[in-house]
Design a protein around this nucleic acid. Structure first.
Lengths: 208, 208
DNA sequence: GGGCTACTTGACGGACCGGTCAACTATCAG
DNA sequence: CTGATAGTTGACCGGTCCGTCAAGTAGCCC
């Protein structure tokens, strides 16, 4: 193996920052390169094109999210009797994504949006490969919530009339929508977990 | 008054279509003009720039939305006793936005997203004027829901623990998030009102 | 050392971007 | 008929877009 480089890593890292704080289309390859201190030609050594870099950015954010969600449900104390406390796990996941956003807010000085939601809104109609890639991330996110919702349903802690199959999508959508409103209205990130907690609580039985 | 023209109207109309089915940045002034059968120079007779056309598109969509929401709450039957039936009005508003989306889906063959949400996600970080304009639309939308939520709270039909001040934002966010997921996953629009109904019902007392 | 290969470099290209402009034309009021 | 004005036209601008390429260089294996 001759000659190694972390140029690819630098590109992904600074692209993640630029796509998040601005947008995909508003950042050109030139700026992507200069931010990563990589020459234009090298960019195309590592990536066939700009959209492939975006894919790598998505994968990086996704890996971080799954790790964070695993951590959130791992540290939550089991319910009395040793069974999984689905309600507590749902609230813990809400806190986890809330903390990710608070972290972005601290780093960038404002709510910058969800890395997936931003790209999805911008590219779903213009880049079918990235759209499907993002759809897979959302599907996995919903799947992780669906596991908990199923348990909650089995335990009978869901409120009457609640569709346990729709609830995961509702929760991801609530997060996406709240963060879009916060970003647009330049409000702070704290209302995001608050809204999630309220939606979760409203779908559970009183006292659950 | 010398010489009149509907070129401006044609521009707004076809821009609304193009921004909705693609995106703001992916559509150039040239394409905007040819779609409206307007020559490039005329464009700048009617609009100082591309973003001003976007503003006009937003205003057009907003006017349509307010009209549709007014209609939805007007036709809803008053509750027994003549008081406003806040719960029914909330559900009617959910149906109204669901129908708007179903209309887009029928026109364009797929879920194309919310005219405001799409632009907000794409432009909130790059165009402060449009961001504020969109924030005002969202604020008005929330305000209209807040009136109903206030009534619901006064009538005591909200579930215990529900923050009536947060609920309007939750509902707008739910809509924005669901439509983003539908657009990204190429699923159909029917789940959007379903999710809204579930969130509304979950925040109301049993039987309300 | 030689040779293979990952990586680097910067100039280049054609397309397109949003926006400007000066000349022109149709319509109206008088 | 005249003059004022709203609207039209298409060439043109500098800048940027994404992507290509041929030539060069640094590191590792042998």
């Amino acid at each position: 193996m001759p000659r190694t480089s972390d140029a690819r890593e630098r590109l992904v890292r600074s692209a993640a920052r630029l796509f998040l704080t601005r947008s995909y289309q508003s950042v050109g390859v030139e700026e992507l390169c200069s931010a990563a201190d990589v020459r234009r030609g090298s960019f195309y050594h590592f990536f066939p094109g700009k959209s492939d870099l975006a894919k790598a950015v998505i994968d990086r954010h996704a890996a971080a999210l799954w790790a964070r969600l695993d951590e959130a449900t791992a540290v939550t104390a089991p319910a009395p009797g040793g069974a999984v406390d689905a309600a507590a796990h749902l609230h813990a996941m809400a806190d986890a994504v809330g903390e990710i956003q608070t972290g972005f807010e601290a780093r960038f000085g404002r709510v910058v949006g969800c890395p997936f939601g931003n790209l999805a809104a911008e590219l779903a109609t213009t880049d079918d490969v990235l759209r499907e890639h993002l759809a897979a991330v959302f599907a996995e996110w919903e799947r992780r919530l669906a596991v908990l919702c199923r348990v909650a349903a089995d335990q009978g802690v869901l409120r009457d009339g609640v569709d346990p199959g729709l609830l995961p999508k509702i929760l991801v959508a609530q997060f996406q929508g709240m963060i879009l409103l916060a970003k647009t209205g330049r409000s702070d990130a704290s209302q995001i977990p608050r809204a999630l907690h309220q939606v979760i609580a409203a779908n559970l039985r009183e006292g659950a």
